[in-house]
Design a binder for these strands. Structure first.
Lengths: 329, 329
DNA sequence: TTGTAAGCGTTATCAT
DNA sequence: ATGATAACGCTTACAA
């Protein structure tokens, strides 16, 4: 099927080794034979088998990324940045999705380990000591993004709690008297890793604890819009909705438009993540930028650190977030 | 570093071969030895080295996808669907991006071939006989998505020309007297593959050729909004804008909102692609769905066909498009 | 300057 | 039921 070093050797009447020396630009070979070999290699259309090379060298030059899905634009932006960072360093990126399924996540990770990925980037759904043990048993450098698993693995993240506090501060600075926090179910915290949302919730509460005069409401679950309706009927207090994710905010904004509820005149809305499609939404959503591309490149750096330096120490890398004060508050 | 078959064999005082028989559930081995081997394998944490297996079997179970970027949501949706389709068939997905750079595209493809991907999915930027030759020389099954390269490779696509004709028909049915077509520069057609946009443009013209009374304008290039302004100043004729890509439409809609131009009352707008973020945009953009997820799964099927059947014949697979008559016309 | 031999970890074939 | 041997394609000591 495809040309091998052996075939070139045969055709040139030299040994395998000599061919290697020519192909890999090594010394201890005469210019003459080198030329002959390179010429016939080219002529025969030789291409190295990277599987074989990887096996031999113990380096696959492949990195795996296990993400939740690609419907969430936060992941997409991160993925894009990761791909670019890796590509420029000669690594190839493998992507696997877990669809928020804990078992699937483990399978994907195991598969990557079996394929001898040199490192794995992970936005984990799993959590807890058993999962930690599983990851450790793989003996592969792993860097987590966003959600934290354990101190044994470097994690790149923003300070979600502080970000939420800053968001609340902004809201209060604009005179709102009631704040609603919308997020996915946190009740699954026992079995699933919703770390970042939990952090945001805690920040939300921490900041509001300083302002007992402000009414606070937490809405969680998929039917958040239904839960929101009764609240919207009593708008005597100026109300702002802080969403743990821009998509929640966009959904709500769309509904508001249909109900002729004006933003921010009637209700204020703020998102989280600053996904790129916000560019196309009017009015421009006020949100918190979690700097996905930045996170991605730092995570890649950290992973490569761990790959090249066996003794690199795991750390929690906290990157700055940014309040994007736009038009919906 | 990691446990191998040899080590298990040594520990169990049997040969490599026997270990393999146990691990791979083969016959010709006593239940007793099998159990012993499986137990110690588990105990030692054995995991097969998939690189070695791939090399030996000549099957890597990896598929490469070369896309343009992940900023374009059309690609993202396709990627997501491809990943799901492949994962369920036991293949692993490798992703590489070319950033619309023709040379980069070739590099990525070559790399995939060198890594012995069993097949490659391609949204090609390159075109022409030289590129065709390059692809053929790789001896890897390739399926193109969207853009066509040559009859030697299966291509999965929608009939973009017909889709554009249908779009124009819809526009005319609503009584518009002037139609503007917005698309990326087609002048680069010589060196770059903008096949789908060219097809759409030709459909646009073909349909309007049947209606000489309708004024037509084509706008191309990045500064499309500037080119649009003079047109908008003379709105005595009812005008619709057909965009070869939803993102163009979204950009224009946003600008319109700022300029207080009403859609569709003042100007009609129609997009192309039906990207998922349209869900959040009000008013709902009228567009053409190119069924990305459908394209993706068909492309995967076709690729796997070619992988398993050396003699599979290349075909052009045309999937149905769908006019999404929503709120902006 | 060139070649020999062993090895990466797995699998398949053929003997015993 | 078990094992010896060669093979996948590449690399690297170590000889000559």
């Amino acid at each position: 099927m495809s040309v091998t070093v052996n075939e070139i050797a045969a055709k040139c009447n030299v040994s395998r080794t000599t061919v290697i020396r020519a192909l890999n630009n090594q010394s201890r070979i005469s210019d003459e034979t080198r030329k002959k070999i390179l010429d016939t290699a080219k002529e025969m259309g030789y291409r190295p088998n990277l599987l074989a090379r990887s096996l031999n060298k113990g380096r696959s030059m492949m990195i795996g990324m296990v993400a939740i899905n690609m419907e969430n634009l936060v992941f997409v932006e991160t993925l894009n940045a990761i791909n670019n960072a890796l590509q420029s360093r000669g690594y190839s990126l493998n992507i696997a999705l877990n669809g928020e399924d804990c078992e699937a996540e483990k399978c994907r990770i195991q598969e990557f380990a079996d394929r001898r990925m040199e490192g794995i980037l992970l936005s984990p759904v799993n959590k807890g000591p058993e999962f930690e043990q599983f990851l450790l048993s793989l003996n592969v450098p792993i860097v987590c993004i966003g959600n934290h698993v354990s101190d044994r693995f470097s994690t790149v993240m923003v300070d979600e709690a502080q970000a939420a506090r800053d968001a609340v501060k902004l809201i209060l600075s604009k005179g709102y008297q009631r704040v609603v926090f919308v997020c996915p179910p946190l009740s699954v915290v026992a079995e699933r890793n919703v770390f970042s949302h939990v952090q945001r919730a805690s920040g939300f509460h921490a900041e509001l604890d300083l302002h007992p005069e402000i009414e606070r409401i937490v809405i969680t679950g998929d039917n958040y819009f239904e839960q929101l309706s009764p609240i919207l009927e009593t708008l005597e207090k100026r109300t702002a909705i802080l969403c743990s994710g821009d998509i929640y905010a966009l959904n709500i904004m769309r509904q508001f438009k249909e109900l002729k509820i004006r933003t921010p005149r009637d209700v204020g809305i703020m998102g989280f993540d600053n996904i790129s499609v916000l560019d196309y939404i009017v009015p421009r959503l006020t949100t918190v930028s979690t700097n996905n591309t930045n996170i991605a490149s730092v995570a890649v750096n950290e992973l490569i650190n761990h790959i090249t330096d066996q003794n690199a120490v795991s750390k929690k890398i906290v990157l700055p977030h940014q309040i994007m004060d736009m038009e919906t508050l």
